[in-house]
Design a protein around this nucleic acid. Sequence first.
DNA 1: CAACGGCTGGCAGCAACCTGCCATTTGCCG
DNA 2: CGGCAAATGGCAGGTTGCTGCCAGCCGTTG
Lengths: 222, 222
Amino acid sequence: MTSDQVITVRGERELSARTAHLFTGVTSEFICAATDMDTWSHRDTRKAITARMRPQLTEGEVVVRKLYTPAALANEEQRDHLLAVAGMGARVRICATGLPHETIIIDRRVMILAGTVMAGDREFTVTTSPTLISGVLSLVEATWEAATEITAYLHRDAPQVDAEGRRILQALGDGLTDEVAARRLGLSLRTYRRRVAELMRLLGSESRFQAGVHAGEFGLIP
Amino acid sequence: MTSDQVITVRGERELSARTAHLFTGVTSEFICAATDMDTWSHRDTRKAITARMRPQLTEGEVVVRKLYTPAALANEEQRDHLLAVAGMGARVRICATGLPHETIIIDRRVMILAGTVMAGDREFTVTTSPTLISGVLSLVEATWEAATEITAYLHRDAPQVDAEGRRILQALGDGLTDEVAARRLGLSLRTYRRRVAELMRLLGSESRFQAGVHAGEFGLIP
DNA sequence: CAACGGCTGGCAGCAACCTGCCATTTGCCG
DNA sequence: CGGCAAATGGCAGGTTGCTGCCAGCCGTTG
């Protein structure tokens, strides 16, 4: 039995001071998973790091993987930054489910984990324990696999479907005929079919089967 | 800045010896994520732990969550064990993507992470660092959200679809009309529709829309 | 009020889909 | 070879889905 150290720091400032050298010293891999980019709220810091890593990134020396939740895309500035980073060769994915706390793994040798907020400051842990890192890494990998590429995520601009639209999709998903569905929803057959045609146009589908696939992909079928 | 300890042990035996008291002392929550149950390969140990936790589990005092990959279901004994545990009130989910290393979190106070194999023995880390635990916990939560309940996972006995069936589903997913699809696949219209009817019966669908949803759910649409 | 636009629902006609029936073909086995 | 079962494909008649057209209703606007 051996024991290893986990260093806990409080607040971004201290973290920044103690780990800056790690970020500039990346040699092969940089993995980052977080809900959004509030941690590195200082845009200038982000820019500086990005600029420093740029040459290695474009030449493929360093593999950069970033995993965020949709929250990171809500802020336009963050979204543009992510797209820019992706354009430079980093792999960026969006994880729709769950929201990992901030996790950073550098060269599979150092790991930084964000924890809870205490007395106004967030706590972070820094560790180099290989066992710990490989364990967390596999969890990150699992989440990574379930996430979707940012380009694909943005490409599928999920069509806006109102409550009635969702009821209609549900009726379709239940396998009801138009006549039954229309009656159940209190619509005339004509109007119901008009709605279905609109939904199909919205979903970009050319057949009902395809519409079913698309509706499922967009998570519109409960 | 503070520092916390991470204890590393080698091999299941040492782990077992040092952490047995933790398993018996669970008071509120027990989370376990792993690829399969090879770690606790000693069936007797498993049984003993299960038996000891049973009263608390059935009375809802302790929340037990278990997260595995489909590999755990391949072995019949393991599958039965999981179903039995689920029947006792534990929540068991299967994570199709990725394969987390073994992770155990007890009462959100102690965490055990499995690492790499070294000299024939697996390494495990044991820690009580709250920051570390909450960080890993959020990762587990994310994977948990993406996973499916074991009952649902087993219930959906994915229908067997051969290569031609998948080509037909693809044609349907591409929005082709029956006539075009049949010609493209070298089938008569009649036979093509026969195939579609078979597939719909196989998928348990009553309309083409519903069939599209189901096919998507089963991952039959590439 | 009148004119307008948007939404609705009925009708009709067409296109697509579904299926029972039967003749034919294919593959297999004795 | 003959016989059998399964699969195929054509046909016919049915249902369901799709949409253009038009008449009616309602709220807005001038």
